[in-house]
């Protein structure tokens, strides 16, 4: 029995070795030795005729034989598989099949970022119409007709030949700022509240690298029984540091807006030269103006029927294009509206 086993071992390993690299011969060898009628299977069957005393030893030897043949076959098949796969080798430097994502417009991204910051501070988002009346755009905000404070608000008016104009309620215009939404909101809601208002505004400015007749603003208004100027500073500092980085310094300068008092202009330390006053972006001043803000003028509260003795409010407004230009280093406002995909796809 032992001789027979040795003989088959020799023969099988030799045959497998010579079948190297040939899947069909290897398969034939597997059938010949390990198949249902294979030589090793037959050996197991012939165990019944072996002397019972020799059976354990014979069984052990046949099992060793089976393991050796199986291993030899597996090894050959594995190396064969490797060779075969290598033959279909890909040029892995070919480009991946693109699943290009579209991009949001940088103005959208900037507005979303601004709104996100204020939402996290407890503000909610409110919108209003772009075609406004003179009352909401000016009068209610304490910007009287024929007053020099209107110089900052050149305005597109709407043709209303089919109407009788004259009163401020019927004189239509394209809002020159988002502040009319303050009035519309306060007319319908009672304090306390805090809102942010994004939207398009229009001013008849000749278009160049830094002027556009249409641009975007975000306006904020928080009204309650204990809103203070110090709160305005706190909120806008958080905003500026979140959007321009934690090292940003702020500067509040007294200013004048008809609808706020006290009023302030807010500068941030130049994000290019880090406030050193050494670059052209800040004009060597080290500061960049980004916001107008202030405490709501009591006259504005009175115009919407609030008791200006009982409540106070803070308000602020910013130009989105300006912030986007600073954040992304964009040097020409017209790029926002050309929609050149080489521009849009950068953000």
């Amino acid at each position: 029995m032992k001789e027979k086993i040795d003989e088959i071992t020799q023969e099988a390993l030799k045959e497998i070795e010579s079948a190297k690299g040939d899947r069909a011969s290897l398969e034939a060898a597997r059938v010949k030795y390990l198949g249902r009628k294979g030589m090793i299977t037959e050996l197991f069957k012939s165990m019944a005729q072996v002397d019972p005393a020799e059976r354990p030893e014979a069984g052990r030897l046949i099992n060793i034989l089976k393991d050796n043949v199986t291993k030899a076959l597996d090894d050959q098949l594995l190396s064969l598989a490797k060779v075969e796969e290598a033959g279909g080798r890909l040029d892995i430097t070919l480009p991946g099949i693109s699943r290009r994502l579209g991009k949001k417009h940088p103005i959208t991204k900037t507005i979303d970022e601004i709104l996100g910051i204020f939402i996290s501070l407890g503000f909610r988002v409110v919108e209003g119409p772009e075609i406004e009346t003179e009352y909401y755009n000016f009068e209610a905000l304490n910007i009287p007709l024929e007053h020099p404070s209107r110089d900052a608000f050149d305005t597109f008016y709407i043709e209303t030949v089919d109407r009788r104009p004259e009163t401020v309620d019927q004189k239509y215009l394209l809002r020159s700022h988002t502040s009319p939404v303050q009035i519309r909101f306060m007319e319908k809601n009672k304090p306390p509240f805090s809102i942010v208002v994004p939207g398009k505004v229009y001013r008849p400015d000749a278009t160049d690298a830094s002027h556009s007749f249409m641009f975007h603003q975000v306006e904020g208004l928080a009204v309650g029984d204990n809103i203070r100027f110090s709160d305005l500073k706190g909120i806008l500092s958080i905003f500026a540091r979140r959007i321009f980085g934690s090292k940003t310094r702020l500067r509040f300068r007294p200013s004048f807006f008809p609808f706020t008092e006290p009023s302030a202009e807010v500068d941030i330390s130049c994000i290019i030269c880090k406030g050193q006053g050494k670059c052209s972006v800040c004009g060597g001043k080290g500061w960049l103006e980004i916001l107008g803000a202030g405490m709501v003028n009591p006259r504005v509260f009175e115009n919407v029927g609030y008791d200006s003795e009982k409540i106070t409010g803070l308000a602020f407004g910013m130009g989105v294009e300006r912030i986007a230009m600073l954040k992304y280093g964009i040097d020409d406002i017209r790029l926002f509206f050309e929609n050149d995909i080489r521009f849009l796809r950068q953000f």
Binding site: I119, L121, G122, F123, R124, V125, V126, E127, P192, F193, S194, A222, G224, N226, I227, R228, F229, S230, D231, K233, G234, I235, S237, I238, R251, F252, R253, P254, P262, A264
Partner: peptide
């Protein structure tokens, strides 16, 4: 203005942060 210390108001308000549209 620079001498006025920053404070944070407690702005508590219910309702949706974003309108449906």
């Amino acid at each position: 203005y620079e001498k006025i210390k920053e404070t944070i108001p407690s702005i508590v308000e219910g309702g949706d942060r974003l309108p449906f549209n």
